[in-house]
Amino acid sequence: MAGNMNITLKVWRQKNANTKGKLVSYNAKDVSPDMSFLEMIDEVNEVLIKKGDEPIAFDHDCREGICGMCSMVIDGRPHGPKEGITTCQLHMRSFKDGDTITIEPWRAKGFPVLKDLVVDRSAFDRIIQAGGYISVNTGVTIDANAIAISKQDSDKAFDAATCIGCGACVAACKNASAMLFLSAKVSQLSLLPQGHPERKSRVENMLQQMEDEGFGNCSNTGACSVECPKEIGQEHIARLNREFIAAKASSDNV
């Protein structure tokens, strides 16, 4: 059931990290409004493969907005024109026949391009390694209901924990700061009593790692929350800042 939209794509093509890239135009023909954005690119790629050309490389996996793998800047906006969704959840009914769409990778010093639209986000793993966890070994024997946690705190922690680690916040930020991503994890763990013993070192170490990875500082412009597909709010950054000030006031890391 092919559709009848014709779309022009301008796609960032870059062989690898060491070469320069450029925008290349492609036609996407017979596009159906029911197609997802990535399915539209799949079809373009099928044509390229048959011609013996290299398909457009892009990251994706779950295609249902939860794995955080897809990552395209579409017409200048991370994850495209609609709010609260990922690239893979965007459908072609959000575009119209004859549109020209520009597709670029996340751009940030902390996320070097590997090929075309694929970037290296391993810095996010390293930020988590710096302290985004509670240090418990497997085999704890404390009953799960031994500590009651207020539903309100638990719900707030959950809201923060819905971050999918996609990096759109970095791509949206003029400073390429990873603060929203960091704050989601710091916020989750500081709202839960289990996270309290390590709260000081966690925020300090994660911030240090963010800096080491080449991400910029937060200047509170809020663009990150606007583009975040999980709508992680600015209040989490505020909470991170409070955690950091409290940590500095009585730091163990001197």
């Binding site: 966890y133 418990v136 009953d143 638990s154 959950f158 924990a161 989750q188 839960l192 289990q194």
Partner: peptide, 14 residues
């Protein structure tokens, strides 16, 4: 469940 709660998994609560 004990393990996950200790890790900070935010299960639904009453």
């Amino acid at each position: 469940i004990d393990q996950c709660v200790a890790q900070g998994v935010p299960f639904a609560r009453e």
